[in-house]
Design a protein around this nucleic acid. Structure first.
Length: 299
DNA sequence: TAACCGTGGGG
DNA sequence: TCCCCAAGGTT
């Protein structure tokens, strides 16, 4: 009996222990999978689940979202964070209708050309929606590979081409098995090989883990630069957007002025929201979410 | 490339 | 309490 490969070990564990996440149900559409991947960018699974279900119930196909406005997308996004992703998803729906007959393309280069779709998301859709063989490298996979294969306590701060190569080398040849292995690597990193308190006692590759073998040296420090929030423009943007999200239609500038005392910073944040396509001025002294008005009349 | 882009929960 | 972290992308 030949020894199991790393991918086989993790895949077998995955088949027995995978979380029951709704977008993993057989028959989930490529669009639904794309939506899940965008929502999961920097937002924890538990908060994505209900938002994903509501989003797909309202917009089951790209054309349904494309027919509405960025404002609708921003409201539906709720408090998932980084609301630019909602606008990108709207733009994505428009692009799918205009360029791909309302479908999610299968080709990696076409996926990469979509708004808000980068190295990770494009490969995740190609693998999980279409069963293609691509390295799907997110923060979990980088950590798993860094530890189990390279013997390092943590991955580097950013995804590099070498990360894709290292992961690709672990994938089975057969595409469906490769896609399964990618999901399994991610799951292992999310549930067992976590950043702070890895649960090595229940790890399926504990006995072949290079990090374990090397004495499991502790992580040296934060993987990424510390992200402050309190007092930053990001906090002010969040406060402004929360007001606009709750409102229906335009909000007076005077009302927005009350969310933050510092005039300079508040104005800068509001201007940035306009630049980023989240907010637009209405008349002389009001603002609204982009497109937050009566639907366009047919020409 | 490093900084920027929200929000909330857990240790 | 505070800090870290979470299926990244864009500039």
């Amino acid at each position: 009996m030949t020894e199991q490969t790393f991918a086989e070990r993790v895949s077998r564990w995955y088949e027995e222990n995978a979380r029951d996440l709704p977008w993993r149900k057989p028959g989930t559409s490529p669009w639904a999978i794309l939506v899940s991947e965008v929502m999961l960018q920097q937002t924890p699974v538990v908060r994505v689940v209900p938002a994903w279900e509501a989003w797909l119930a309202r917009w089951p196909v790209p054309a349904a979202l494309a027919a509405e406005s960025p404002a609708d997308a921003i409201r539906m996004w709720g408090r998932l964070g980084y609301p630019r992703r909602a606008v990108r998803l709207y733009e994505c729906a428009v692009a799918l209708v205009e360029r791909h007959a309302g479908e999610v393309p299968e080709r990696l280069d076409q996926l990469l050309a979509l708004p808000g779709v980068g190295t990770y998301t494009a490969r995740a859709v190609a693998a999980f929606a279409y069963g293609q063989r691509h390295p799907v490298v997110d923060t979990n996979v980088r950590r798993v590979v860094a530890r189990a294969v390279a013997g390092e306590p943590d991955a580097g701060p950013t995804t590099r081409p070498s990360d894709l190569v290292a992961t690709e080398e672990l994938l089975p040849v057969e595409p469906a098995a490769a896609a399964l292995a990618s999901a399994a690597f991610m799951e292992l990193g999310a549930v067992v090989c976590t950043a702070r308190s890895p649960r090595c006692a229940v790890c399926p590759v504990e006995r072949v883990c290079a990090w374990r073998a090397a004495g499991q040296q502790a992580p040296t420090g934060p993987t990424r630069r510390p992200q402050r929030y309190a007092g930053t423009d990001r906090q002010v943007r969040g406060l402004l957007l929360a007001v606009l999200r709750e409102a229906t239609g335009p909000v007076a500038r005077l009302r927005l002025d009350q969310v933050w005392a510092d005039d300079v910073q508040r104005s800068r944040a509001l201007a940035a929201l306009v630049t980023d396509g989240l907010v637009e001025p209405v008349g002389e002294a009001s603002y609204r979410l982009v497109g937050d008005g009566p639907a366009h009349l047919p020409i």
